Structures are given as structure tokens and as C-alpha cells.
Amino acid sequence: MNDDIHEPAAAYALGAVDDIERASFERHLRTCERCRAEVASYDEAVLSLATSAPEVAPPPSLKASVMAALPPQEPSDRRTAPRTAPARPWLTRTRVLVAAAAVAVLAVIGVGVAQPWQQPTSVAALSPAERVRLSADAQQHTAAVGDARLVVTTSRSAGAATVQTERMPDAPKGHVYQAWFLDAAGTPRSAGIMTGAQPQLLQGTPGASLAVTVEPTGGSAAPTTAPVVRVSLV
């Protein structure tokens, strides 16, 4: 089995991944019990240290020690050395080692101060939208809107859904995008005003489909325009 797919767990738990890597690894987490358990174990270790250890200032030598442990980086010269993109299906091994080293450093010195790279990863600390997206029974439903894409993630166990847009143009001035759950008969029920490209928890229990309309700022009690996109959720 290729273990590279599991490597980002430590880096993900400490927030040491970019948005693309985070989204990719979260899709992997939905189907990998091993990684969910590993992420939870890192989280428990960090939270335990944060709540039990006294607050102390990190020693001045900490940064130097961590930097000294990193593999040496070859200087680049743009005039003589062409840059090539590293092959990284998930994350480079160096960043995984750095993330693991960060956990080890915390364990050794017992630091109880908040760290800028620390992000909530336990189930209790996840946002409602993240809980839906990481549910074991999460299902994605997509629809194209020209060059843009609408992604709705539903979870029967959570009884909820999230919406995310990719490359969606802004709504006209003085208007917003509003999501609607439609039942089998097509009756609409507001699922909330869409606030941006980040995953957003929709209001209420998912229906048979979801539609998005353009409404005046503040939203409407019922759709006033034809849907710009509609996606089936069954």
C-alpha cells in the first residue's frame, strides 16, 4: 500500500497545509479511518498540553533548533538554474517532518501558549460545515454554472448540507445569491443567503434538490427570479 496518501495527517492537524492540500486531504479523511484516528490523536496531544502545561515563553534557542533540524536547502539562482515544480501528490516529506517535529517540540518543552499554526481538528472543535463535509456518509453533488461550479455536500447522518462555489461571479450590485431546498413537488424553502466561495452550512434539512437564485440584498421569502443553477440531491 502506498503510505504517501496518509502522510499529511500530522501537517493537517497543525494547519501546516495550504488550501488545496487541505481540501484534498479532507476528501481523503472521509474514507480513511486510519487518518481520522491519527489526526484526532495529534489534536488530543496538543489540546492536553495547552490545558495542562503552565504558560511559558519559548526559549530563544527554539527557532534555531528547529531550523537546524531541517534539511539544507540549495540556493536558487534564477539566472542559471531553471525552477521546476516538485512532484507532490499530497505534501512534501520535508513539511510532514516539520509538522511532526513541531508536535515533538511541544511535548518536550510543555509549552502552554497558543501557537499561530494551531487549528481545531477534534470533532468537537470542527465547524458545523466541516462536520458535514467529513461525515462518513458525505456525498457530493455538483452542477456547472457556465465556467463556474456549484458543489453541494450532503450527509444523511448529520441531516444537513453544505454549499461551495468555484469561480462563481459576484451577484449583481444590490443583489445576493440565495439557496433554496426544493421538495419532490418543487416547492422551495430558503436554505440561506450564500456568503462566499468557502464551504457554508445550509439552513434546514436537505430537500430533493437545491436551486440558487439572484435576490435583492437581504434575501427573499420566496424566489423572485428563475434559478441560475439547480442540482439534484437524490
Results as ranks from 00 to 15, higher is better:
75 P>I: 07
137 D>H: 01
129 A>M: 11
159 G>I: 02
218 G>S: 04
161 A>E: 01
156 R>Y: 07
6 H>N: 00
94 T>A: 12
58 P>G: 11
90 W>P: 13
31 T>N: 09
186 G>T: 03
192 G>W: 04
152 V>I: 15
219 G>R: 09
11 A>Y: 00
38 E>N: 08
9 A>S: 12
138 A>V: 06
56 V>G: 11
161 A>Y: 01
217 T>F: 07
134 L>S: 03
29 L>I: 01
91 L>R: 11
35 C>G: 10
2 N>T: 02
12 Y>Q: 01
109 I>Y: 14
212 V>T: 06
73 Q>M: 12
104 A>C: 15
146 G>T: 10
203 Q>V: 13
14 L>R: 13
90 W>D: 09
157 S>T: 13
150 L>T: 00
233 L>H: 15
191 A>T: 05
103 V>W: 11
174 G>Q: 03
169 P>Y: 00
220 S>Q: 13
125 A>R: 14
142 T>G: 12
119 Q>E: 15
119 Q>W: 14
98 V>Y: 00
187 T>E: 03
61 S>W: 03
205 T>I: 15
102 A>T: 14
75 P>S: 02
11 A>E: 00
41 S>V: 12
193 I>D: 07
226 A>N: 13
170 D>N: 02
206 P>L: 02
201 L>C: 08
57 A>D: 10
103 V>P: 10
158 A>P: 01
48 S>E: 14
2 N>K: 03
84 T>N: 08
77 D>Y: 05
212 V>M: 14
138 A>S: 09
183 D>N: 05
213 T>G: 03
29 L>R: 01
57 A>H: 09
127 S>Y: 14
208 A>Y: 10
107 A>Q: 04
